[in-house]
Amino acid sequence: MPRQSLQGLTWAAVPLLCVLCSACEAPVSQVPPALETALAVNASALSVSSSYIDIRLRTGSGVSIGRTCGAANEVSPTCASGQASDFNHHWISPYDGTFTFSTQGAGTNFDTVLQVTRWSDSVPLGCGDDASGTLQSSVTLNLAANQELRITVDGKGSACGLFQLDITGVPSTCGPCNTPPSPCHERNGTCSGSTCVYAMKPTGSACDDGNACTVSDTCGGSGICQGTPMACNSPPGQCYASPGTCNNGTCKYAPKPAGSWCEDGDSCTSSDSCSGSGWCYSGQRVCCANGGWLCNGFCCGTNEYCDGLSCRANCDDTSGPVMLRPMCPVMY
């Protein structure tokens, strides 16, 4: 895909570039100087979508108007499945406040899905599908001033077509109101006077208590996120003690003391024991699985006999050259 450079920014050619509303252009003074050269250089961001258009701090109706048909399928939305082509935007929030991203304008003519992620690391912030009973999409987020986002207009299933992206915002006197006091509070709060107020999530909602050694974390009635301790009952071998302990989400098992009983899997050994480092040592051999002679702790082969100390070739072995055949013991 061809590219051209303009004032340190990388612009990617797409099947049909958006026609941007010139009346929505943000004053240059609102753009922090550091951001002028920071765009399109983040490797993590570009690995998600290599083609995008930069709409900066624009808000209003029709900040981007375009067509997704023929574009690449670079982003997978979290709220809908499909392999549709998508169109990506880089956007910066102009102030602390509540922003709504929508494709519900008259310029949209297909079943859309709207995905909003952080620009720097692509963490999903919101995903919208079928807003207000329509085929279009809407996502509302509380954001801090100068927060960078990727806004992806996608299609549901394989749908594609013309879209109109609208962005409306309501400034907040409380700050961004997007840092809830616990995992069991909704991410987007409301501004009351000078204080952010966050609603509680319903009891039983999934959450993350921050402890890697718990599973199935859920919100309780008091708003506390609690999980079930991870069970560590599957040691890697019989010479490891159970239960084990969890360390940062991984079960660790201590070796059993040396001499602890174990079974090496050989029915012809007795008194097998653990080494103290997790291995099972074979005990004394009491028989030979292949039916051979047991000789001083070893098993003789099918054509061998035991002389009391070691295995010897049988006297009736007539295979091989005569000179190499075993000599039978002289019988008196």
Rank of each mutant, 00 (worst) to 15 (best):
I65W: 03
T250R: 09
D54F: 00
D121C: 05
L6Y: 07
L125E: 09
H90K: 11
S64K: 08
L114K: 04
T228H: 07
I224F: 04
T302G: 11
L114M: 07
R67D: 08
C21S: 15
P124G: 12
T195N: 02
L35D: 04
P255N: 13
A23K: 15
M200A: 14
C274M: 02
G221W: 04
E148F: 02
P32G: 02
Y281P: 05
Q4A: 09
P235Q: 01
E74Y: 08
V19N: 01
A26W: 03
Q238K: 02
V197M: 14
S192A: 14
T98C: 04
C288H: 14
Q4Y: 15
P94I: 00
K201Q: 14
D154M: 04
S205T: 08
G237P: 01
S93G: 03
C328I: 09
A231T: 02
K256C: 11
M331G: 08
L165V: 06
N296S: 15
P183T: 05
W11Y: 12
D209M: 05
S137Q: 06
G210T: 04
F163Y: 09
C315L: 06
F87H: 01
E148P: 00
P236G: 06
D217F: 07
G204H: 14
C306W: 08
P235V: 00
Q136D: 05
D86V: 13
G210W: 07
C24E: 04
P171L: 01
P243I: 00
Q284R: 12
N233W: 01
P180M: 10
R118I: 01
K256F: 06
S44G: 15
V14G: 06
Q7N: 08
S205D: 10
A71P: 03
V197C: 11
L114C: 10
D317E: 13
A131L: 05
Q164I: 08
D129Q: 05
R118K: 14
C219Q: 08
L9N: 09
P181Q: 12
Q164Y: 01
G223K: 07
V41P: 12
S158L: 15
M200S: 14
R56M: 00
T179L: 15
V197R: 14
W261P: 10
G276F: 04
N146Q: 04
I224Q: 03
G210F: 10
A80H: 04
Q136H: 13
G249I: 11
L57R: 00
S277E: 12
A159I: 03
A131D: 06
C251D: 13
T318I: 14
L20T: 11
M1L: 15
C207S: 08
Q226R: 12
N146H: 02
L114E: 06
T10L: 15
Q83Y: 13
D208F: 08
S234Q: 06
V286C: 11
C246P: 07
A258Q: 11
C239Y: 00
A231D: 10
S93V: 00
D209L: 02
N142M: 05
T250W: 11
E186M: 11
G308V: 10
I53L: 14
D121I: 00
Y95I: 03
S270T: 13
V139R: 02
S120K: 08
N188G: 12
A72E: 15
V153L: 04
G66F: 02
V28C: 07
P33Q: 11
G157Y: 10
L294N: 14
P181G: 05
P176D: 15
G157T: 07
S277R: 07
A212Y: 04
V322N: 11
E36A: 09
A84G: 01
P33I: 12
G169W: 00
